[in-house]
Design a protein around this nucleic acid. Structure first.
Lengths: 339, 339
DNA sequence: TTAGATACAGAAAACGTTTTCGAAAGTATT
DNA sequence: AATACTTTCGAAAACGTTTTCTGTATCTAA
């Protein structure tokens, strides 16, 4: 069963393809009678315009490209869910590709997306992407919106989580629970979110007049469970005193819990622990981990909305715009004893 | 900066677009001299054929469609990673869509994929999809390969995990540890994998001459943590005796652990627990969960390979083929006491 | 009645490729 | 020298749309 084409419908009604096209696309110069007749058979025969013919003619593909670092990161998956959701709603297809945290890969995949004639591009850039010329260049070809992992050096629309506020809330919560020697396990130096979460940490200390102790500010290049564990292990070895840990990700926080448990340090009685991102793991680990929940799906949906807006309203002067989404602190056992 | 077209290259060399096209696509009837010259400027100007023009002319899109139930299921994400990987390797784009476990959604999204002119389709079907007419019909339009959640009623290539063998290995391991009263928490009746995992369970019992106790075979419609917990809770309430739990997913197994811990039943001393799929959570929960690891990425890669094979070698007579991938039992604390 | 407007429909071009077919020129064979 | 074959290339059609432009018929207003 071949696909229905304009010419098929045209023949049935003894009209030209022009007329059929115009009827289907809602142009004014076709009579009500012929329009309804055409629309009817069009529906009956399940007519759908050939995507390539239409794309060739209109230079639009109704497709957006999405580049994420790694689909296995659950936050990436959550955002993607929001993107798929919203894209479907607006009638856009989604072309997906991973950059796998490699700069070269990101650059190459970006070019492939452009070559694929997508109408717009959604990118979460790599942390190593200090060089963002390729992003700039891409944005000259088509609308580009950045999400989650962004760069402030790019004059584009950015959708992110308010990292600083999230971290501030978390650390404030610790302070209000009476904690004063709060460890912060940070990530890579040049990471946007790591930097801002550290700022939130510092902001909270400042507000409550707690002196900054640089010994408590740890840096772990990889924000994994084992690195988190190692970081706390080292601290314990040095016999540094602390009564709380704010981990920049759930993984490092979980690593911290493991290290503490191995040293028989009770959580949260002796040391409270908080993570960031409220992953599935937070409610699996015992004690359940207090964590800063990020609205991933909303981020995805918003990114699509802004992108489609730019697709529909091409602008020459780009006004860099950063939308920050609020986080929610999920308080659980690891930071809260009812006593 | 506009994109380079065939005509641009043609003008530079004073030849026709036909010749340029043929040079680029490796046809024989173009002299070595002109070919190298054309190829050179083609590279210099970063020529890439317009996807729509090419698609319109050749009826190929170099794109495969992927339909998964839910990207938030980590096994779905893992498979997708394999798919993206392999697709990139073979030069195919990936169009992604979720069916969100709804039959109507699956049907609709399937149609959209066909309308999008993808060259082939990769589907993990919903468990409610008893009606698979839409899959059959789709497979008359284009190559379709099913993975993970499949249906044996469809004469297509299926890529799955050897659920029965995985379950058999898990239960055999329990038996070899001296367990005899083994609970099996199953999923929905009409689920392919649930059924086969149950078969593996039964096969192991039979091999070791352990009588089947139907009281120990639980069915939970939703394979979630809370349902797993509830199932074991009910069993404990009825005071049914058992010394091991084989959960059909990691989630129900984790639910089982929670129920046992709430009732102060030690794991694995009193009751051993095993899950299925070896998710991230398995190494987060204490005790670490023994689980059947499924080769998700390999599944994705294989699915792509078979699909592309069918795309390149269209066949009229479909030979239904089912490829089963072997699982690996990851033995951890929840089923293994060194004593 | 006529001039001008309006409503409707089709012809044709265009989007950028690929591919078929034939032409031209060169080479080999008789 | 005539024939046949080979090599190299281009003209043109085709893929299925959308859109512009033009034309005709009908309608309105004077």
């Amino acid at each position: 069963m071949k696909k229905t084409k304009l010419i098929d419908i045209a023949k049935i009604h003894g009209v030209s393809t022009s007329t059929v096209s115009k009827a289907i696309n809602g142009h004014s110069d076709v009579s009500a009678a012929t329009r309804t007749a055409i629309l009817e058979t069009s529906k009956k025969l399940h007519y759908v315009a050939n995507i390539h013919a239409k794309g060739l003619r209109t230079q639009k593909s109704s497709t957006i490209g999405v580049i994420i670092p790694n689909i296995l990161l659950s936050f990436n998956a959550t955002i993607l869910k929001g993107i798929l959701d919203s894209a479907k709603e607006f009638g856009y297809r989604v072309l997906l590709s991973e950059s796998e945290h490699y700069f070269e890969n990101e650059k190459e995949t970006l070019q492939k997306m452009i070559d694929s004639n997508v109408d717009g591009l959604l990118i979460s850039i790599n942390k190593e992407s200090k060089n963002i010329d390729h992003i700039i260049k891409a944005s000259e070809h088509l609308p580009v919106v950045l999400f989650d992992k962004i760069s402030e050096k790019v004059p584009l629309t950015n959708i992110i989580v308010d990292d600083q506020q999230g971290a501030f809330n978390a650390v404030e919560h610790l302070i209000l629970q009476g904690r004063k020697e709060i460890v912060c396990i940070c990530g890579a130096k040049n990471s946007y979110s790591s930097e801002h979460r550290l700022n939130g940490y510092l902001e909270a200390l400042e507000k409550y007049k707690i002196p900054i102790n640089s010994e408590l500010i740890l840096e772990s290049e990889q924000v994994t469970i084992s690195q988190g564990e190692l970081a706390i292990q080292r601290l314990l070895y040095k016999a540094t005193k602390f009564d709380a840990v704010f981990g920049i990700t759930d993984n490092v926080a979980i690593g911290a819990i493991k290290a503490l448990q191995k040293n028989k340090i009770s959580i949260p009685e002796k040391v409270s622990v908080i993570g960031f991102s409220d992953s599935d793991k937070a409610t699996i680990i015992v004690p359940n981990l207090t964590s800063v929940a990020q609205p991933g799906a909303s981020m995805g949906r918003l990114a699509v909305r802004y992108l489609i807006d730019e697709i529909n309203n091409p602008i020459n002067v780009r006004t860099p715009k950063t939308i920050e989404l609020k986080t929610v602190l999920k308080i659980r056992e690891s930071s809260f004893s009812s006593i």
